[in-house]
Amino acid sequence: LEARLEQANLLKKVVDAIKDLVQDCNFDCNDSGIALQAMDNSHVALVSMMLKAESFSPFRCDRNIALGINLSSLMKVLRCAQNEDILTLKADDAPDVVNLVFESSESDRLSEYDIKLMDIDQEHLGIPETEYSATISMPAAEFQRICRDLIALSESVAIEATKEGVKFSCSGDIGNGAVTLRSHTNVEKPELNVDIALSEPVALTFSLKYLVNFCKASGLSGTVKLCLSSEVPLLVEYTLASNSYLRFYLAPKIGD
């Protein structure tokens, strides 16, 4: 494997966003790119990352390899990179280590680190293609704010999408709270658009602590996409350049 990223910052932000949710992960490398899939310890949330080969320049992976990496170790090393550094990941065919090289585009500094790999026996889940009842695109910062505000009141949020809009509501010991967003197009600031595509109304309840955790990815993309269907996990997607993505799935709370 040899994969060169123009900005180390991308990998730094991705790992920073998921490191509190999942600890030891396989980075599955093949000629289409670098993928990661991992559940949190409680098996309530699933992280699915895909960094497509096109996100790297150049990208070369001659043989499929799984790099088992502890994310807190990876984060320690990534913190040694300047955000603007060029990052090259390298690994042999049957690697014991992954090699990270940081190059400054402005100076002649070149830093090199190896991280020891681990054998991780990780269950790989098949995620079915789903036609979601509701797909909501909204500013990532807005979603983060709603989750942070509501967790002050309650552990859970009900997300209800209807043709009127999408309503995030919660109730807790001190009282209730709700935020409703309607479809909204801002010609001058399209990054503030809220788009709700609905095939049928849907209402589901989710644990807010996971959603707040997912929102650590807000710095990766201006927009977040929420996809909901009855009785299936919520998909929270941050789209990255070159069709790469960071997706989180969250199992709903069911009952009553």
Binding site: T205, Y249, K253, G255
Partner: peptide
Amino acid sequence: EGTQANITQFFGGS
């Protein structure tokens, strides 16, 4: 508030 479901109830092994 309902019971927290598990991801593996929805996504099978592959």
